[in-house]
Amino acid sequence: MEKSINITVKVWRQKNAKAKGAFVSYKLDGVSTDSSFLEMLDILNEKLISERQEPIAFDHDCREGICGMCSLYINGHPHGPDDDITTCQLHMRKFKDGETVTVEPWRSNAFPVIKDLMVNRKAYDEIIQAGGYVSVNTGGIPDANAIPIGKPIADEAMDAASCIGCGACAAACKNGSAMLFVAAKVSQLALLPQGKVEAATRAKAMVAKMDELGFGNCTNTGACEAECPKSISIAHIARLNREFLCAKFKD
């Protein structure tokens, strides 16, 4: 049932990458519980604009949980208190009347703040550039059905491939490790015959890049899996470790 609630939104505001940030609290009354969390921020921004203030900058695009653009630490959880969803899929019915909602950007050395709640996640692109692909050019490819792939394997690869590159895993990790993100890609491609050929070198290159970019080490705390909006399993980290050892062994 639709209701409306009054809340206080405590938001991290930071003018730019160099500026010092601080929390600012805003009161917001009459928020429909049917509105999404980002729609709540839209309403707050409209209010700020009507008061001739600068709106809060935050990343978002698809607003349906697939592009990985939205981020936000909400009440201490990446993508908020609800399970298995992104911030843009979170709805205000998860909050109580009178509640103070704390909103912060991702906190990770590898994701510096650009403005307010927006961070720079180029590091994830760089990890993919280090080897998150199958080395094939366009054209001159065999028929798609030339190599059958068992359904369970294809399904597992699909599960790994559903990572949206949002960065919650590194943001949630006390070590700031990007291991779940890296493992998801390594695992997807290692499972498929097309990607198997380069599996070991890929794992090595991507892990090396992750280390180089200042992400921390994985100590298997499992925080990433718990906060991942796509429920990517840490079992993929085990597969990554196998590929990685295999690469080391070959050296």
Partner: peptide, 14 residues
């Protein structure tokens, strides 16, 4: 379809 499969796109299978 051939191209995407070669890239490792995990299409649904039987």
């Amino acid at each position: 379809i051939d191209q995407c499969v070669a890239q490792g796109v995990p299409f649904a299978r039987e």
